[in-house]
Simulated assay, not measured.
Amino acid sequence: MSAEAMLRPAPAVAILPSRGGIVGALSDLFWRKPGLLLFLMLAPPVLWLGIVYLGSLLALLLQSFFSIDEFSGLINRELTLKTYGELFLPANLDIIIRTVTMAAIVTIASAIIAFPIAYYAARYARGKWKALFYLGIMLPLWSSYLVKIYAWKLILAKEGILTWLFEKLHLMWLIDAWLSIPVVGGNSLSVSATGTFIVFVYVWLPFMVLPIQAALERVPGSLIEASSDLGASPAQTFRNVLFPLALPGVVAGSIFTFSLTLGDYIIPQIIGTSRLFIGQAVYAHQGTAGNIPLAAAFTVVPIVVMGFYLWGAKRMGAFDAL
């Protein structure tokens, strides 16, 4: 054998020897049938989604077609639309309108506040300032949900820091005038619809800022410059160029703010008046009143509203900005 042949590396083995035992047999089986491996990996989450989530949702939907016997107070398990008819009673319809209206107002206010913040982060923040921006937006999400609500209850209370500040500025008359308005007012900001609105906007604002910021980062700076070069004013550039391109991000953020406000019952329970929201009505009928069919019917309302909302959001391309 020549020296060149001795120095030539041995050819690599094309096929590794099979491993013995159960592990080797399973490895060979999954290699021959990759579909089986995919099925085994997806089976647990699919079963969880199908049984726990969709199963409970279907059970809830089924219970909404039951009714309460007026004499015995027991659930009548015959399918009927009587419970859905109760949703159109003035008291229940008032709860639905109040909740949807609050969700819409909170969504609009969050978008107005979030847009300039997101625009600055997308266009001007760089390096450590962008990291500081993300930290400032995400930091409130790291604290306890209840702690934030109770902190705002102390801030908005009649003896709270906000009242103290307005007294120092001699503007207490402004708060008193606002609280005297029947629908939005109350004894103090902590027991008024205005206080509920303020806390809703504070808690859900990060969910609006981040999708808008992601959408604005996709807008090329050259388009803004071209609009200015063509003689457009800043207002025209915003209306015709920037806002239409950022609209999917706004709609994406509104999915979070609208749906979370629609189903929340803790904030109105702690901060607000005695007027119920859908979440509070569900809690009351499910627990105190024992009227499970009506509680289930109330729960279907946000599902239907969000179904139409998501359908419209998808048509506007909002899912691309999530």
Results as ranks from 00 to 15, higher is better:
Ala284Glu: 09
Arg123Phe: 04
Leu146Asn: 12
Val301Asn: 07
Tyr309Phe: 14
Ala214His: 07
Ile212Asp: 00
Val199Arg: 01
Ala25Trp: 02
Met41Lys: 12
Phe243Cys: 10
Ala313Val: 07
Leu81Thr: 10
Ile108Cys: 05
Arg239Lys: 04
Leu189Ile: 05
Leu37Arg: 00
Leu210Val: 13
Pro293Ser: 14
Pro293Lys: 12
Asp28Trp: 06
Val13Trp: 09
Met6Asp: 15
Leu62Arg: 14
Phe256Glu: 03
Thr288His: 09
Ile117Ala: 00
Ala214Cys: 04
Val282Asp: 02
Leu322Val: 09
Tyr265Gly: 01
Gly20Tyr: 08
Ala284Lys: 15
Ile303Ala: 08
Leu54Asn: 11
Trp178Glu: 14
Ser274Asn: 15
Glu78Val: 14
Val250Gly: 02
Leu61Val: 08
Ser227Glu: 10
Phe166Asp: 00
Leu74Pro: 02
Asn92Val: 08
Ile96Leu: 13
Val301Gly: 02
Leu169Lys: 12
Ile255Lys: 00
Gly249Ala: 07
Met102Glu: 04
Ala246Ser: 09
Ser72Ile: 12
Gly73His: 12
Leu141Val: 09
Ala246Tyr: 04
Lys148Asn: 11
Phe238Val: 00
Ser27Gln: 12
Ile278Asn: 01
Phe256Thr: 02
Ile75His: 03
Ala246Trp: 06
Ser110Thr: 04
Ala296Phe: 01
Phe243Ser: 07
Ala14Glu: 14
Leu171Glu: 06
Ser64Trp: 01
Gly231Trp: 09
Thr194Ala: 08
Ile303Tyr: 10
Leu154Ser: 10
Met102Gly: 02
Ser56Thr: 09
Ala3Met: 08
Arg98Glu: 01
Asp320Ala: 15
Met1Asp: 13
Gly272Met: 03
Trp48Gly: 15
Gln286Glu: 10
Val184Met: 13
Ala235Asp: 07
Lys153Val: 04
Ala193Gln: 12
Val23Trp: 12
Phe200Ile: 05
Leu322Arg: 04
Thr299Cys: 13
Gly287Lys: 14
Ala284Phe: 11
Ile22Asn: 04
Val209Tyr: 01
Gly50Val: 06
Ala104Tyr: 01
Ile278Ser: 02
Gly287Phe: 15
Ser227Trp: 05
Leu174Phe: 14
Trp164Gln: 14
Ala121Glu: 00
Gln213Lys: 06
Gly263Gln: 11
Leu57Asp: 09
Phe238Leu: 07
Thr299Glu: 05
Tyr309Glu: 03
Ser188His: 07
Lys168Trp: 10
Asp176Asn: 10
Ile255Phe: 05
Ser56Ala: 07
Leu154His: 06
Lys314His: 14
Gly287Ser: 15
